[in-house]
Design a protein around this nucleic acid. Sequence first.
DNA 1: CTGAAAGCGCTTACAG
DNA 2: CTGAAAGCGCTTACAG
Lengths: 347, 347
Amino acid sequence: MKRINSNDIAQLAGVSRSTVSRVINGYSNVPEETRRKVMKVIKEHHYYPLISGQLLTGKKTKTLGLFWLGRAAIARDSLTSSYFMHVIDAAAQRGYLVLSCILDNLTEKHNINYVRKIFMEGRIDAGLFVGTSNNEPLIEELVGLDKIVGLFDFYHENEDVPNRLSVNFDRDSGEATIDYLYALGHRKIAVIDGDLSRLSCIHRHESYMRGLIKHSLPLQNKWMAYGGIVKESGYAAAKQMLSACMDDLPTAICANNDGVAFGVYQACEELGLRIPEDISVIGADGHENGKYTNPPLTTYSFDFKEMFASLVNRVIDTVEQKDNIPQSDFIPGHLVERASCRKIELL
Amino acid sequence: MKRINSNDIAQLAGVSRSTVSRVINGYSNVPEETRRKVMKVIKEHHYYPLISGQLLTGKKTKTLGLFWLGRAAIARDSLTSSYFMHVIDAAAQRGYLVLSCILDNLTEKHNINYVRKIFMEGRIDAGLFVGTSNNEPLIEELVGLDKIVGLFDFYHENEDVPNRLSVNFDRDSGEATIDYLYALGHRKIAVIDGDLSRLSCIHRHESYMRGLIKHSLPLQNKWMAYGGIVKESGYAAAKQMLSACMDDLPTAICANNDGVAFGVYQACEELGLRIPEDISVIGADGHENGKYTNPPLTTYSFDFKEMFASLVNRVIDTVEQKDNIPQSDFIPGHLVERASCRKIELL
DNA sequence: CTGAAAGCGCTTACAG
DNA sequence: CTGAAAGCGCTTACAG
């Protein structure tokens, strides 16, 4: 059974292929009657033009690539499913589809070729990258080839490159977290940093430090650790840090993100430290599971839906050659107070 | 800057487009020296043939559609991120990409047209559906149009339709669950069913009933409820059921899936019932979060990675016109014993 | 072993 | 307002 094409539709409707095409593409110079006649045949046969033909004439794919870096983090983090959904929804909103790839990194030859191929074969109008580390030559190459690229949490000072868009966490989350703890009376505050090859982790680290300095609080090595970005690494870092300073414990721990905070919970449990009675814990992200931990996790929360929508919309605006598109967007977060931080009575 | 095409490559390499194409497609009748000469130019210019041109000559898209039904369930369930990953990984394994869509249902006109369009426009070689309910006319239409369709948890007795593939949960999970509880000494067993428009929920219900009957246990209305498939609905069902039979509580509750079991946990907590001391709870699925609940959830677990790999591979085999492809596959689950079911001393 | 030619399904100036 | 023609980038019989 041969597939029906625009020629067949034209014949059935008694017009030329040109007219069929004009109707499909909504040209204004088609009289209402002709349009109706052609549409009738199109509907009857469930005819849709093949994109392969359309693409060859310069139409867009109306497809975004979504390149997800870091398989391990994805597998372990349930926030991720909502990320996927946010991207797909935001794109669908604008009539775009999403082609998803999961890759461990963007440095292995094999992965580089894979991504490059998807761009060069003309499968997508633009590509979104999530989980990039701070230096990605492939992305610069693609930008140089005039490919449109959207980056989550990957800011470039250079804003003169209109085909490189980004969305970022605000840069004050760390400071705001410290402010909150300070106001509760905490003076001995530990910080567990994330993966410092990621932009947001660097910014948050710097912001924590600004907060500590602002309040003239001590920056002590024994109260600092690198906790990665997942529960397991957060657990290991917290366990080691706390074990080493049991004689002089901090009264509060800032975890670079909620996954790490869950690891801190586990470490505290094993060390017999009650949260928040013995030690307060505060995270960052706004992870869904934070509502259900015991105690529920106080955290500096971000609206990921908003973040992805901002990125997707500006990328699509760029594809559609709109004007005055902001290249970067820093999304503000806000404190979500639950039950993992307690007030300290000051003497 | 114009894009380089096969003509340019041909000129640069001093051959015809035909030969360039032969090299790219790995034809055997190209002498090694010519091949090398052409490949050199191709590599140098990072040339990749546009798929639009290739498709028009009958090549496949090497892309699978993934149609995800039921936005609400996705948003709430963190298992979902691993589902996405399993599909994308299994497809990538075979050199296929995945185009993902999220839809509330397959019944609204708008959604039907959306899915139909993606198939008809030639964007994908086959489509996978997850979260379908038991009767989906659109799927039958697509099957009738010779589209290749892969269904998760949606079995058809009629196995004579080679372009309709499915993967399913084994049909003994309910019975095995009852067997387990019976062996622990439980005689008063409640069942919270899922969404009976889904095949697996029906099968599991029937299987629970078989188990109860086999052991001559009472099928009591007061110990039966419909709990949907997410935590919230499971909570509501359990709360209502338990509140209504506080004078004669079951000693164990079977939850249709783990999400529902988490709802049961919440209901029990509110009613002051300790798990497993006062009441045992067992789930089904093997949800990652079940490890972290208090107490950790005993459940009848399935390997979703295996399930999706089975479906993806058989769908791709069908696309590639291999022979003797099983249309359905029932994947066996197994009991994962954690701490939510206790032994009952029999008098 | 290899090139010239036809053709895939569409859209879009062009001409009328 | 509308049709005939050209062209997009590829692959594949066909002929030599």
